[in-house]
């Protein structure tokens, strides 16, 4: 059975893993301070984190908690772990920040983050995933599309594990919702309804 093995959500300055709150910070905090506290809580030194833009930091932190104690690339083979992510604003938050530097001194370190799939690259580097990856843009969270996409990858034997991600960030408004999808004997079956429910309850 294809199941939602675990899920992680980050929003409203709270980080939850499988519904359990692991971190909650006051609303007044800036995103950058909140995400740094999540990094500290994770307790693992990864200096590349500090070079990332906010969107990648958000995706990275959610993936760290989702995949803690898992070595998917060893378990399934690097080429068999797939990432399917989506959001509303693409990389617009960093696009705006990059464009502010254009008249003066265009920043190459910001420009590289003006593509939303860079977050897939960052997670792939960290986790050594070499499988299929795809990034889509929707007006709002699309449980049906993501569910069908992951199911097809697993059923067609194009992947042995899939991470579904909804990672959105624009001007201090943000949310991340990541699910690890695997074939297991028991657990929450991956259906449009179950995915929708986890997203709504997040």
């Amino acid at each position: 059975m294809i199941t939602i093995k675990s899920y992680c959500s980050v929003r409203n300055h709270q980080l939850k893993l499988n519904g359990t709150t692991l971190l909650a910070k006051e609303k007044e905090l800036l995103f950058s301070d909140f995400i740094k506290s999540a990094y500290d809580l994770n307790g693992s030194t990864y200096l590349k984190f500090f070079k990332m833009d906010d969107l990648c930091k958000l995706a990275f932190i959610a993936s760290e908690f989702l995949l803690k104690n898992r070595k998917l690339s060893e378990q399934y083979g690097a080429e068999n772990v797939s990432l399917v992510f989506a959001n509303t604003s693409s990389s617009l938050d960093t696009d705006l920040k990059y464009y502010q530097t254009v008249k003066d001194f265009p920043s190459p370190s910001l420009f590289v983050y003006t593509l939303p799939n860079i977050m897939l690259g960052e997670i792939s580097i960290r986790q050594k995933f070499k499988g299929k990856n795809a990034f889509f843009v929707f007006e709002a969270f699309q449980a049906e599309f993501l569910c069908n996409y992951a199911t097809r990858l697993l059923n067609d034997k194009k992947a042995k594990a899939v991470i579904i991600g909804w990672v959105e960030l624009l001007k201090e408004n943000y949310e991340a919702f990541l699910c690890l999808i695997e074939e297991t004997e028991s657990g929450t079956e991956l259906t449009k309804e179950n995915l929708e429910k986890l997203y709504t309850d997040r």
Binding site: T88, L92, D95, N117, N133, F135, F136, V137, F138, E139
Partner: peptide, 26 residues
């Protein structure tokens, strides 16, 4: 500026029934 909005404008021009899918992967 939103890619989904641009896609919607294009799909609406042709009166398409389904919401277009947007791929943005560098």
């Amino acid at each position: 500026l939103l890619l989904s909005e641009m896609a919607k404008v294009i799909a609406d021009f042709f009166g398409m029934k389904n919401t277009p899918l947007v791929v943005s992967n560098a």
